[in-house]
Simulated assay, not measured.
Amino acid sequence: MTQSQLRIEGYVILSANGMLADASGVMPPELKFDADQKFFETALDAADLIVHGKHSFEDQPRSALRTRIALTRTVPAVARDPANPKATLWNPAGASFEDACNHAGVTSGTAAIIGGPEVFEMFMDRYDVFWLSQAHRLTIPDGTGGFPGIPVKSAQDILAAHGLKPAETHVLDAAHAVDVTAWRRA
């Protein structure tokens, strides 16, 4: 499978200071906004494949129906997830992303990358578009940055350094200053 057969899209919501999780490594409820959750769920419903790490999941009513690849070090390469028939376990140290996609039975369409930080970083040079939602009035002290390198660099600087450019921005929740910007590959 070539890279061009699968459209790679990233999705994250970050606080104003670039955090995805609190000091305990958990996304705080304050970072969950109904409008952003609806945007996220709609996008995942349209995706052919969901890709995430062991701590990232969408926790939505249709989550179990989605074909997914979960990154793990518990398998040598790729394997079926015994707990979820729609999931493939993938160890990037033992197999390529294309191998994992083939194992999952998805060789075209859209792959939605939903985190965490190391997973986002793996695809930085492959994203066709990265949907960066941000809660501009919320800061999370001592949290986990959405990408490796935050807070030294901003999420926007990191995306730009990988050839993505901000395109359209949509206000999702004006009352809470939450928006989403599509960062597209030039």
Score class of each variant (00 low, 15 high):
2 T>C: 12
3 Q>M: 13
4 S>Y: 11
5 Q>S: 15
5 Q>R: 12
6 L>F: 06
7 R>C: 09
7 R>V: 05
8 I>N: 07
9 E>M: 06
11 Y>P: 10
12 V>T: 12
12 V>D: 07
14 L>I: 15
14 L>D: 04
16 A>F: 11
17 N>R: 13
17 N>V: 09
18 G>C: 02
19 M>S: 03
20 L>E: 08
21 A>K: 02
21 A>L: 11
22 D>G: 14
24 S>W: 04
25 G>R: 02
25 G>H: 07
26 V>P: 01
27 M>L: 14
29 P>N: 15
31 L>G: 03
32 K>S: 14
36 D>S: 01
37 Q>H: 06
37 Q>E: 14
38 K>D: 07
38 K>P: 00
39 F>M: 08
39 F>D: 11
40 F>T: 01
43 A>P: 06
44 L>G: 08
44 L>D: 05
47 A>K: 06
47 A>P: 15
48 D>K: 02
48 D>R: 02
48 D>Y: 03
49 L>I: 05
49 L>D: 14
49 L>F: 02
50 I>H: 07
52 H>L: 09
53 G>Q: 15
55 H>F: 12
56 S>R: 02
56 S>T: 15
57 F>A: 13
58 E>C: 07
58 E>S: 15
58 E>H: 10
60 Q>T: 14
60 Q>G: 11
61 P>H: 14
64 A>I: 10
64 A>Y: 10
66 R>W: 10
66 R>S: 08
67 T>Y: 06
68 R>N: 07
70 A>S: 12
73 R>T: 13
74 T>C: 07
75 V>M: 06
77 A>T: 14
78 V>M: 00
81 D>H: 07
83 A>H: 06
84 N>T: 06
84 N>Q: 05
86 K>N: 15
89 L>K: 11
89 L>A: 07
90 W>R: 04
92 P>M: 05
92 P>T: 09
95 A>D: 01
97 F>R: 01
98 E>C: 05
101 C>V: 05
103 H>P: 00
106 V>T: 10
106 V>W: 00
108 S>I: 00
109 G>P: 04
111 A>M: 12
112 A>S: 09
113 I>N: 03
113 I>E: 11
115 G>E: 10
117 P>I: 00
117 P>V: 00
118 E>N: 08
120 F>E: 13
120 F>T: 12
121 E>A: 15
121 E>I: 04
124 M>I: 03
124 M>V: 07
127 Y>W: 00
128 D>A: 11
129 V>A: 13
130 F>C: 08
133 S>G: 15
135 A>M: 04
135 A>F: 03
138 L>E: 01
145 G>H: 00
145 G>E: 04
148 P>F: 04
150 I>K: 00
150 I>Q: 07
153 K>G: 01
153 K>E: 13
153 K>H: 14
154 S>K: 03
155 A>E: 04
156 Q>L: 01
156 Q>C: 03
158 I>V: 09
159 L>N: 13
159 L>T: 08
162 H>I: 06
162 H>N: 13
163 G>I: 05
164 L>C: 08
168 E>M: 11
170 H>L: 05
172 L>W: 07
172 L>R: 09
172 L>A: 09
173 D>Q: 10
174 A>Q: 14
175 A>W: 02
177 A>K: 13
177 A>L: 14
178 V>K: 01
178 V>D: 09
178 V>S: 03
180 V>L: 01
181 T>Q: 07
182 A>R: 15
183 W>T: 05
184 R>P: 01
185 R>A: 09
185 R>M: 12
